[in-house]
Design a binder for these strands. Sequence first.
DNA 1: ATTAAATACTACCTTGTTGTAGTATTTTAC
DNA 2: GTAAAATACTACAACAAGGTAGTATTTAAT
Lengths: 137, 137
Amino acid sequence: MNLSKTSKYAFRILGHMAKDEHALYSAQQLHKDIYVPERYLRRLLTDLSKHGFIKSIQGRHGGFTFACDTSTITLLQIVEAIDGQGSINECILGYDICVFNHSCPMHDVWEETKLKIIETLSKTSLKDIHYKILEDL
Amino acid sequence: MNLSKTSKYAFRILGHMAKDEHALYSAQQLHKDIYVPERYLRRLLTDLSKHGFIKSIQGRHGGFTFACDTSTITLLQIVEAIDGQGSINECILGYDICVFNHSCPMHDVWEETKLKIIETLSKTSLKDIHYKILEDL
DNA sequence: ATTAAATACTACCTTGTTGTAGTATTTTAC
DNA sequence: GTAAAATACTACAACAAGGTAGTATTTAAT
Ligand code: SF4
Ligand code: SF4
């Protein structure tokens, strides 16, 4: 269970873009809207393009827009793209490979909660979380 | 929401010690049982002593033993001691201070799950998770 | 007293994550 | 064509987390 800061940045970016699904967003404007360090934001945008969530349009009036419907992108997909496959599903005791047979008291305690996390992340699409940025910030 | 590797190590240590609540555990034996790097384990044990979970007994036949009843130590207390107060309760969008009024679609989506995590960690005491280490490892 | 076996302390090394800089490339308005 | 405004790429800097080393201190069996 980890959720890197970069994943959180991705939530900000895509969540903000989902506000108007078909609009074109420039890195500059995004930076002003969601306060992710500009250069890092650009790198992240490129990354998200490579993962197929968005596509970039270069040139004079370029920017970024969604490459697919926002209802098909889930939060879990985003986390797994950034933090790696199965990053949420790791051993709660920090073992790389389970020393028990995926059954110890700690595992039992955590299992239900872990499933809840995965369920929440996988059932929430970007369409559900497009949020408005306050103007006065 | 983060759970550092060090917190997971702490789970291993205290969970293992909870197996026999009143026993005395040496760092060396713990290292063999739970595979936490020995020097790091020792530092962590000192740390956990300072936080009052366990107490150290120095000398020839020294070691570590619980400083209080295992039923009074919750997983949340351990996490907060290691990762810092409120580490679980952080903004899911990565903002240090909330830019909305603690209400945005993302917040709403995450709130219930976050509460579930906190509930699980705070309702589980060490008494509940003392587990047996497999002998053949 | 000596010595072995344990913890305590402090500084440093290593690794991974986060963030920055510089330069190249693409596209379009003019 | 030229210049402006955008993204693309690559390398590296800064910081935090994880892990190691060396030495000091404590205790008790002998
Ligand atoms: S059974 Fe225990 S050791 Fe194995 S993956 Fe689950 S929590 Fe980790
Ligand atoms: S309301 Fe949104 S920005 Fe504010 S703390 Fe919650 S998730 Fe973060």
